[in-house]
């Protein structure tokens, strides 16, 4: 409980200085609670939201006056979140929270594709309480829809495939006197998600298709914090990178030429092409991780 006001204060001050959008080309010192990138395609929105925060952002977003006196909570920790919207259909991919007190009790929340999958019990390894969760790869399809490509309406098969591994660590740094004791906490979700889009239709003498390559997100960013028992303010730091929504979606239409008895390309073009955005929080392995993020 002693940690709570310190942590909330620390988070608030951190976010207050991180309110501006982060330029992909710069090397930011901090990031906001969540990043998102959005584009329109086929009349629907395609976007990615990724969040990694030291504490549940609800603390900041809900004014205490709205519901009477503010009540404290014993939940203090980190949360990570990834959701995407593909052609207007919203999908939650990953929701994870590891509370600092809960971590010791083995109560971490982990939702994968909207389902609670398991609780990762902490193990005391090398002086730290650690939890780790390597998740089976996930596939989610989105409801069918169609898009006119030339003279044919193409039925689209679209969806998301994702993989993730999450680790969280809590390391007590005991010191005497007790007020100099601190706790180092860290969460590192490693998440990758791609979107797939494929459509094909053949109608007597016409055929058309849609294809795409969507790197929805590639993230290997960690957030860590050091919390003292009264002597110092809490501090937080991010490391790693987050690349979002690099994509190319194309279409083609062919007609059958009975004279040559073969198909001829009547039209081809791109519905959308996005270079994506990559946020880097310090070099990883001596190289810029954003250099390899492309559609």
């Amino acid at each position: 409980m002693l940690l709570l006001p310190l942590l909330v204060w620390g988070v608030s001050s951190q976010f207050a200085s991180a309110g501006e959008a982060t330029s992909p080309d710069s090397l930011p010192e901090s990031i906001p609670a969540s990043l998102s990138e959005s584009h329109a395609v086929f009349g629907g929105r395609t976007s990615v939201s990724y969040g990694l925060a030291p504490v549940d952002p609800t603390f900041e977003s809900l004014p205490p006056t709205a519901v009477g006196p503010q009540q404290t909570t014993d939940w203090v920790g980190f949360s990570g979140m990834l959701s995407t919207m593909l052609f207007g259909k919203d999908r939650s991919i990953l929701e994870t929270r590891a509370g600092m007190t809960d971590l010791l009790e083995g109560e971490s929340d982990l939702y994968w594709g909207g389902f609670r999958v398991f609780s990762s019990k902490p193990a005391f390894i090398d002086g730290s309480y650690q939890i780790s969760a390597g998740l089976p790869s996930l596939s989610m399809r989105i409801p069918l829809f169609g898009v006119p490509v030339g003279p044919v309406t193409v039925r689209i098969d679209a969806g998301i495939a994702a993989e993730a591994a999450v680790t969280a660590k809590l390391t007590p740094l005991i010191a005497v006197p007790i007020q100099f004791t601190s706790v180092r906490a860290e969460m590192n979700p490693h998440v990758d998600a791609i979107g797939f889009v494929e459509g094909y239709a053949k109608w007597i003498a016409v055929r058309a298709g849609v294809g795409g390559s969507l790197n929805l997100v590639s993230a290997n960013a960690s957030v860590s914090g050091v919390l003292s028992f009264g002597a110092k303010a809490a501090t937080f730091a991010y490391q790693g990178f987050i690349g979002m929504l690099a994509a190319k979606i194309y279409g083609f239409a062919d007609y059958f030429n009975p004279f040559g008895w073969k198909w001829k390309r009547a039209w081809q073009g791109n519905f959308a092409e996005w270079p994506g955005k990559c946020y880097s929080f310090g070099p990883v392995g001596g190289s810029d991780p954003c250099a390899s993020f492309k559609p």
Partner: peptide, 16 residues
């Protein structure tokens, strides 16, 4: 509809 495209009444006669 909203921010999503819906198409009805038409489909490819042959699926890939």
């Amino acid at each position: 509809v909203g921010d999503a495209l819906t198409v009805s009444g038409v489909e490819g006669a042959e699926a890939k």
